Amino acid sequence: MLRIEKYAAIDIGSNAIRLLIATVIEREGDPPQFKKTSLVRVPIRLGADVFLEGNISEGNILRMLDAMQAFSLLMKNHKVITHRACATSAMREAKNGEEVAKRIFKETGLRIHIIDGKDEAAIIASTDLRDLIDDNKAFLYVDVGGGSTEFTVFANGKSVVSKSFQLGTVRIINDMVRDTIWEEVKKWIKTHTKDFRKINVIGSGGNINSIYKYSGKKIGKPLSYFFLSNYFEMIKDKTYHERIFELQMNPDRADVIIPATKIYLSAMKWSKAKNIFVPKVGLADGIIKSLYNEREAKRMEVK
């Protein structure tokens, strides 16, 4: 007998807002299966407002309301049993972030949890990476977003240390990253990876997924530092419009892909990693896993 339920996660980032609906299939005696049923991405670049003006503009608030109303209807149609919406860098830095969250709740019924960098890193670290994280290996997990990048070091099959930095792609293209931040990230990565003889990077985020798709690699195979370096030089030599037309990138991807690739390359260089794995997991996956674990805990209490 199977138990089949649907969960939903809304990730409100600095570059885009995403709705992930996942189907969780359970059979007694076996580990649960998590299947991505639907993923909807809306390119509302909140970071462009917040990092430059300090507030979310009325125009983008109205776009958010439309998106959240649509997400609510999609979840209803899918018969989602529980959901959670988490907002990251842009909304937590916006002066009107809390006000916007209240307005969205009032008009759509969807409550937004504005989480800090540590919570974001912890949720991402909770994703199921068992297929990659071996007890005898060390990894540096790098999740690049529009407003911030989360770094987590895994060793002996466990999370060792995590940190969030205000080094995001939207922030970079708008010249909103202070000069010292790169040095801070470099120092942190070197400090926390120097004791490992060999380390690999795990990349997360829409940009590295786009690069991985372009590479044509089979799922599970890593990208090399050499490949990523050549890719970086190639996209730098193309104009914004050439990246859209020739490389078939979405317009909201074609500008942020360069700083994103630079962050991944830097992380590999400073940790001395030769490969980067791309398991396609991120904040939304972590939210789904958290919701499932919470429901399981409640079921155990009832028993």
Rank of each mutant, 00 (worst) to 15 (best):
L2V: 12
I4M: 14
Y7C: 10
D11E: 12
I12Y: 02
G13E: 02
R18G: 02
I21R: 04
E26Q: 13
E28C: 07
G29F: 09
T37D: 14
S38Q: 13
V40Y: 10
I44S: 00
A48L: 12
A48T: 13
F51H: 09
A67V: 00
F71S: 01
C86Q: 09
E93I: 06
G97I: 00
G97F: 01
E107V: 00
G109T: 05
R111M: 12
I115T: 03
A125E: 06
D128Q: 10
I133N: 03
F139N: 00
L140I: 07
V142Q: 10
D143E: 07
K163L: 08
G168T: 01
T169D: 07
I189K: 08
I199S: 01
I199P: 02
I199N: 02
N207Q: 07
S210R: 15
I211F: 05
K213A: 15
S215A: 12
K217D: 12
L228C: 05
F232W: 13
D237A: 07
H241F: 08
Q248V: 13
V256D: 03
P259R: 04
K262W: 03
I276E: 01
A284W: 02
D285P: 02
I287Q: 06
K289F: 10
Y292P: 08
E294G: 04
M300N: 09
